[in-house]
Design a protein around this nucleic acid. Sequence first.
RNA 1: GACCCCUUCGUCUAGAGGUUAGGACACCACUCUUUCAAGGUGGAGACACGGGUUCAAUUCCCGUAGGGGUCACCA
Length: 471
Amino acid sequence: MTVITRFAPSPTGFLHIGGARTALFNWLYARHHGGTLRLRIEDTDRARSTEEAVQAILDGLTWLGLEWDDAPVRQYTRAERHTEIVRALLAEGKAYQCYCTPEELTAMREAARAAGKPTRYDGRWRDRDPSEAPPGAKPVIRFKAPQAGETTIDDRVQGAVRTANEQLDDMVLLRADGSPTYMLAVVVDDHDMGITHAIRGDDHLTNAFRQVQLFRACGWTPPVYAHIPLIHGADGAKLSKRHGAVALGAYRAMGVLPEAMRNYLLRLGWSHGDDEIISTAQAIEWFELDTIGRAPARFDPEKLLSLNSHYMREATDERLLEGIAPVLAEQGGRHLDEADLARLGRAMPGLKLRAKTLLEIIENAEFLFQTRPLVMSDKAARLLTPEAHEMLARLRAELDALEDWKASSLEDAIRRFSEQVGLKLGKIAQPLRAALTGSTVSPGIFDVLDALGRTECLARIDDALNVGTTE
RNA sequence: GACCCCUUCGUCUAGAGGUUAGGACACCACUCUUUCAAGGUGGAGACACGGGUUCAAUUCCCGUAGGGGUCACCA
């Protein structure tokens, strides 16, 4: 059997971490089996669906590298097909018109709840003749669900889950305005799209019972279900906006690499022994539904960032450099000119070891772009003692005489100088770092010298030497 | 409230009827060292509780507690 999975988000907001993981699992499962991943935009809620959200979802998936196969299906455009199915159900007596008012329904639920019973529609229009309908009222169409027995789902993650049919009520298929509901649309679309495996959040688990019943009523076979546990926030509740950054785009914006995000999401609820760093190729090879855990996982940004610094260290300088421009643009930060980029490129090997995100690289590279004279941090200023001034003046002369301005020769020269003047390297490097970067913290001092270039370095040293002189 | 699901270090997880219960992130210490990171070494840190079953249970079963999800003319 060819595997066909699907990712079916509703475009009512941004693609968030949880949705991204669901997409990843569907993609991985399809790729593992040489199958197909289809994308369906569940936009039957016209009021809440937006084009921006559709675009954000597409962008997010593309960024993550989860390519889908076939054009995305817009659920809304299939309304005619959905109502056609309902007409057939109606004709077969498997659905019926219901004229309950919203007030009646509310009262029904409250009464049921007060009596300690499941809050469900009581089926009062199930066998009534439409001729009893209140004049002028528009009915909804409800599914005539089985009332006895039980429905079982053989879920690939949750195992066999069963529910008594009396717990389930007659769900609405068509609204009073004739538009299809989600419950109807998913079933018809999953069938029409040939979906063999529905991998989705387990917030859909209870829906699955009703959907299975509908599948059967239509004479179709439901897909294999795999309800994966939700991702929770640090407090253990379903991930939502109040947990801070939950939009995939927020992580892209701060310069998280897609492979880091993929790796992190993969390890939430799924594992392969003790493996932590897992390439996408390996993930495709190893991924199976049976190894997905059943307990919800909490989202831990620290671990994501840790994975990201790993992948940044592995990335080429060129790739990082390219990635920085969009991050800068998104942050509305400074524009880097040719010279800035050249410096950044030279400093990249040292910078990428010291940052957890691309954004952090930029922050740590600030000293490269600063215009003279530098703003000194207090700590840095304190390093520039009279002795340091004297040392820097002598060092400046040495550097000025240096022919080959590159990290290795700079290191040789400074180490030689260190022995000459009988000072430990730290006594030289720290004041020099202060003069060059205005800070006590930076990449390796030889790399800093190299990245900045001769002219700029000498000028910055001069600036430092001039501080405190009266003129 | 009804129904369903879940429970191993703080977090993500591995694990087997008999293990010193393993790894990763975070944390601490040491080390390396030109700062900060990274790296290396080491440390602290968990089987929710109560009953069974069993020679043996953290692992299987049943309860309890706690957490979560779903109960729309939203998806």
